[in-house]
């Protein structure tokens, strides 16, 4: 019986080690990437934010109705020209795939800045610097400045635009959507 007990101990140690080795402690849920390949034009992926339902935070000075309610934006004058927003972002199938921050600000050193960070937990993050002035047609373009994990070896452009909801047909109080289109390709690698 003592030998059985010892065998049980060894089996327990081996079982626990095997379980911790083979069973993932973290397994992030994934949605299928909705990448569209264009003929001779690279590939794009479209994300969107439903407004206002996907807004987590709108941080700005002197807001009549802060979002979320009871938000206390810092009163320092240096943050008066800063607008920081947090969103959930969705893929082409309208499924939430991540979160994003958008900072719009202006000061004498940086000038006018508009930046995004898109954070997709299962894939990585993309840091995007937009051109402050919108293009004709109401959209704004920017560059992927840095990426992590899946986005780390990519380069490319991003566009953002606000698409208003057709108010007469809208039932959910939606004002529209912020559309973010990424066009990323792998960075060129020098031949060895």
């Amino acid at each position: 019986m003592f030998k059985t007990f010892i065998a049980g101990i060894l089996l327990g140690i081996a079982g626990a080690a095997a379980a911790l080795y083979y069973i993932p402690v973290v397994d992030q849920a994934r949605e299928q990437s909705m990448i569209v390949v264009h003929p001779n034009h690279g590939n794009t992926e479209t994300f969107h934010v439903n407004v206002p339902s996907d807004r987590i935070m709108v941080g700005a000075a002197d807001q009549a109705e802060p979002l979320p309610a009871e938000l206390e934006w810092p009163g320092d004058l240096q943050f008066a020209a800063t607008r920081a927003e947090l969103f959930k972002i969705r893929n082409g199938k309208d499924a939430v795939v991540g979160v994003a921050s958008r900072i719009a600000a202006s000061d004498e050193v940086s000038g006018e800045i508009i930046e995004w960070v898109l954070h997709l937990p299962a894939r990585g993050s993309a840091y995007v610097i937009m051109e402050p002035q919108p293009q004709e047609g109401g959209y704004r373009v920017g560059d992927l400045a840095r990426g992590t994990r899946e986005f780390s070896n990519l380069t490319g452009r991003v566009t953002e635009r606000f698409v208003e909801a057709p108010t007469s047909f809208d039932e959910n109080g939606s004002q529209g959507r912020i559309e973010i289109i990424t066009a990323f390709v792998g960075q060129a690698v020098d031949d060895l």
Partner: peptide, 30 residues
């Protein structure tokens, strides 16, 4: 933004979180 990482490995003493900071310092930059 912080997310539990799939690189977490308890055997190696690694409880990993992948995170990114987006920082804006007025008068300095991002």
């Amino acid at each position: 933004f912080s997310s539990d990482s799939e690189r977490t490995n308890v055997l190696n003493g690694e409880a990993i979180v992948d995170s990114v900071w987006h920082v804006y310092a007025p008068g300095q930059g991002t």
